[in-house]
Nucleic acid binder design. Structure first.
Lengths: 135, 135
DNA sequence: AATTACCCTATCGATTTAATAGGGTTTACA
DNA sequence: TGTAAACCCTATTAAATCGATAGGGTAATT
């Protein structure tokens, strides 16, 4: 299941991308508009700033704003930062690969094969959708 | 992430499907062959029996066996029983639909749109793969 | 009658999740 | 220059879930 962290993060990014001008938007404004706990959203936006998606401005009139164009923000990178691995199991993950303890031979594993198909198709979607496609 | 319950359940089904004859296979045999905790596997096989995938035979020479042909067992139904919803968020789920608390209008929701694409593609994979395709 | 093997319930430690609390620090602006 | 606005950061917590274990009960075969 998609975590609320990811859900809220995506909504916040979409909200920022839908703004006409690029003025900073306050946490409180985003939280209210998207019905998100303000404190929780605060930590999510912090993550998105540290990972290079958002910039921030302190003090009066401050807030968060997008650093890149929405069309240049791939859902694959956003999902990896907020949700973690795109693959459903580590043995088919590109960025978070890990071997299964119980599996002597991945190539002969039925679960591996099925989940590889799922990962491929999901990766395809995430790579071919940008923030601009969400709004 | 895929739960170990689902992973083990799929492996057990695949193991049973790969057998030449249809004699019952003991829990201990499956557990050993697939490197699964026997007690944990026991509860999983019980679930699969109650949901109509497996039959069981008690007493000496007993065990579990497939009720249907592997080619008639869709991954979609298996996944729903073991893992739960195929959708990553309830508001795009066919079998486990729920409205989001925070979302006033699903049709206008960016997360909803993205996750709908993901669900469609995953559903497509699960519906078009049977147990026979795993072995 | 004894053994085999499935059946069922309860419990538990570890981890994760979502949220809350409580402040600290920086900046803009009057 | 001081004060309020708004981001920054750490710690804590309640609840849920997961994976596994324990301990026995029941049915069927030989």
């Amino acid at each position: 299941m998609l975590s609320k962290k990811t859900k809220y993060g995506l909504k916040a990014l979409a909200y920022l991308a839908s703004q006409e001008n690029k003025q900073p938007r306050q946490i409180s404004e985003i939280a209210e508009h998207e019905n998100i706990s303000q404190k929780f959203l605060e930590s999510i936006l912090l993550t998105l700033r540290k990972t290079g998606f958002l910039g921030s401005k302190k003090g009066k009139g401050g807030g968060y704003y997008l650093i890149k164009e929405p069309s240049e923000i791939s859902m694959a990178t956003v999902m990896r930062v907020l949700e973690g691995p795109i693959a459903m199991i580590a043995c088919v993950s590109l960025n978070f690969y890990e071997k299964c303890d119980d599996c002597p031979d991945e190539k002969a594993c039925s679960v591996n094969r099925l989940m590889l198909k799922v990962r491929d198709s999901n990766l395809d979607i995430y790579r071919n959708n940008t923030l601009a496609d969400l709004i």
